[in-house]
Design a protein around this nucleic acid. Sequence first.
DNA 1: CGGAGAGTTGACTAGGCTCAATGTCCGTGG
DNA 2: CCACGGACATTGAGCCTAGTCAACTCTCCG
Lengths: 248, 248
Amino acid sequence: MAHHDPQMSAHDCGDCPIRHRAVCARCETDELLRLEQMKYYRSYQAGQTVIWSGDRMDFVASVVSGIATLTQTMEDGRRQMVGLLLPSDFVGRPGRQVAAYDVTATTDLVMCCFRKKPFEEMMSSTPHIAQRLLEMTLDELDAAREWMLLLGRKTAREKIASLLAIIARRDASLKLRSAKGKLAFDLPLTREEMADYLGLTLETVSRQISALKKDGVIELEGKRHIQVPNFDLLLEETGDDSDGGFLV
Amino acid sequence: MAHHDPQMSAHDCGDCPIRHRAVCARCETDELLRLEQMKYYRSYQAGQTVIWSGDRMDFVASVVSGIATLTQTMEDGRRQMVGLLLPSDFVGRPGRQVAAYDVTATTDLVMCCFRKKPFEEMMSSTPHIAQRLLEMTLDELDAAREWMLLLGRKTAREKIASLLAIIARRDASLKLRSAKGKLAFDLPLTREEMADYLGLTLETVSRQISALKKDGVIELEGKRHIQVPNFDLLLEETGDDSDGGFLV
DNA sequence: CGGAGAGTTGACTAGGCTCAATGTCCGTGG
DNA sequence: CCACGGACATTGAGCCTAGTCAACTCTCCG
């Protein structure tokens, strides 16, 4: 498979699939050239750990393709996922020496990494990167706060419905609204990963998915493929206001 | 009382108590002068609502003194606090028209407000504000993610202990480590507000506080004043690693 | 003294967790 | 080709933590 090549052929930033959404979105041509000099690609297989919390981290990166997760773990093993990283999302914090969370590839993953030192220098000299990073960080903060409401106040059923709605929505936006008939997508997470994201146990996740299936809100094909006959019905199960989330 | 004066006497930024921590921390003298032209103070009484979620918001602001909260409310009334705003914290999002959360003063509150339009213009022309705001936003994101772990995975007792530890730590840092004997502080939140912050009911909050008191972890004097005879004991109840949080 | 708001405590309930057995899918090797 | 093993998932039974509903206390203040 392709990921056995550790050093991907360095693509031209102009052709990059995340060019217009990533941290480099606002950069001019000359700034991109400078970024190209400090960038390198890294690939990970599904399941591989990218960084362990507490590890020294000498780069920051953008997710180019695939999905990664940020998780926190307590001493006794309790785990909470605190972020889901999709293509164009940013990994790492300028000014921080050490990773604050475990970063794991849940699918095969390609990241565009920048050596931290030159990246930080560039950040302070050209405003375009910092501006875009601020915007992205504010979006992440909003997402984290929405997740706080889910974790603190939603029922198990509402949590599952919310997660499915988020994945469905994201999938639909990638497919450019080609969802004519039923909305359908693959779950990028195992039941256990969903549990870690939602603050539940994997058994409860499984039970609630079965319940939503029994009630006709979703249809399952295999364990991972989900069809949504009526998206509004799913939205009603999330507990959110009927109009919520469309402004973002 | 002083807060009946709606327009506080405009202080000189140089004397401002949050000068070195707020969004203006990095600004030079000339930049401060520019900020002074667009700033005005507003005061709120304890319990007053500063902004309702969904309201048009034509300013951004820094908390000068007092404590405010950010909360989200579901249609059926379930509430989750998603942020606690302390002096120097920033309110509002550049580029957003409308408030995303309810902002409420839990104590008497003074805010230093900037008209949004000129503030945004200044942000794009001078990098110091955006730099500082990025730093503050990244800190808030970390705090939100720590809170996600609490909401998703901690027990009621651990949640209470964590909140008390956070308040105690903040209080100690304000008092400049004058905590010779016992650590002691006042709770700035009612039981219900604590419940909304921790994803619990107020009854559970009350019970767990009583339990911590019975077990000698804390001592109560009245309803709001708390003494901590042994801070390490309290930390053990939080569920966090023994060394956690000191790097921040 | 009465009333309102905040807090405490008790009795009971229920939603989600734990532990355990069973089921499904898929790749590997005999 | 099929049997086996392992990873992932489902389902059941029982328990326990935190929620619900309700009574009561405390304190402040008019």
